[in-house]
Design a protein around this nucleic acid. Structure first.
Lengths: 179, 179
DNA sequence: AACCGAAGTGAGAGACCTCTTACATCGACA
DNA sequence: TGTCGATGTAAGAGGTCTCTCACTTCGGTT
């Protein structure tokens, strides 16, 4: 594949996940994403007007993926929907490593990207509709899942001691207790 | 107050909290802390060998403060200890705005600062001892509190709609349900 | 009173980042 | 086949940051 990449826009979003997982949002840079793809550091600006818009697109993609993962998990175990959703949430974070850092990142709200905001909202309302939980219980469940996920990302769990799968299970268990 | 500051070391740590609250860990910089205190950007390096050691000291201070807040809250309502602790955790975040971003930040584990690690550990064992909870329940409670706290910091709750105090109450309520 | 060390300062090297500009390449379509 | 627009590049302006170095200030000790 030569001068032209093919689908750089999509590749940038995918590579951004990797960079976020490796360095964290804190050290995320457009330049690092470009390097990872072997394109010049100017190339991303053909597809996104600035760094924040790239991150915003990453955020929208993450919200969509997470939503899909939750939908699938709830479909598999509808009777225990919220717990399944919480487990899926944590597993998603383990898999993608980063989406979460960006889905709810306030700084990105500055970007005039209604798409993103909408997809985050869709994520929430989907959970509401699927599980039939009231807003309060949903909020608590989200907090549990987000708490476990954040702790994982921040390196709270000494690796090796617990499988991430075990942690996801405990998150689901905790969500179940909330009801 | 002239050329010499008095207690710049402590002032740096305090100002770091403000900077963290305003800009987030993501955009934290030693230079910004120095600016805020009106000292030269070289001054902090008289007290901390590098940026990570400053953040590590901030982290240790945050862990201590949070621990004290939790101890006080549990003492006030020992029968409902874990819920009180969760509420205190969220309120602490609201008050200091930032400590949490740094207490569990994996990147700082690189710093050879056993003090910090120890104080984070003390925070956990204190909760264990005070409340008599088993490790599993404690973990779930921490996740709830940390989840609510992270969501607040990330701007998930549209301000105005809920008082932060109300949110802290809901976090405590959720923690209570876990038992 | 003189001095010494702790704690400041100003200047700047070196790294990295964001984003711009002028130019190069290539695929699609006339 | 020729050309044109989309998508890439190289170079660089301008910014911020971390951390260093040589020098200054000043409180406390002798």
């Amino acid at each position: 594949m030569g001068y032209h990449h093919g689908d750089l826009r999509a590749a940038l979003i995918r590579a951004s996940f990797d960079v976020l997982a490796e360095t964290g949002l804190e050290r995320f840079s457009v330049a690092a994403v470009a390097r990872r793809l072997g394109v010049s550091s100017a190339a991303p600006y053909r597809h996104f007007p600035d760094r924040d818009h790239l991150l915003s697109a990453v955020s929208a993609a993450a919200a969509d993926d997470l939503r899909a993962a939750i939908v699938a998990a709830v479909a598999e175990d509808p009777a225990d929907g919220l717990a399944a959703a919480a487990g899926a949430y944590v597993r998603y974070v383990v898999r993608t490593g980063a989406g979460i850092q960006v889905i709810f990142a306030a700084e990105l709200y500055a970007v005039a990207d209604d798409d993103r905001r909408e997809r985050t909202r869709a994520l929430m309302t989907t959970m509401l509709e699927l599980t039939g939980a009231d807003a309060r219980l949903l909020e608590a469940t989200l907090a549990v899942a987000h708490g476990y996920a954040s702790l994982i990302i921040q390196g709270f769990f000494s690796q090796g001691a617990d499988t991430l799968e075990e942690i996801a299970g405990r998150a689901a268990q905790a969500a179940r207790a909330l009801r």
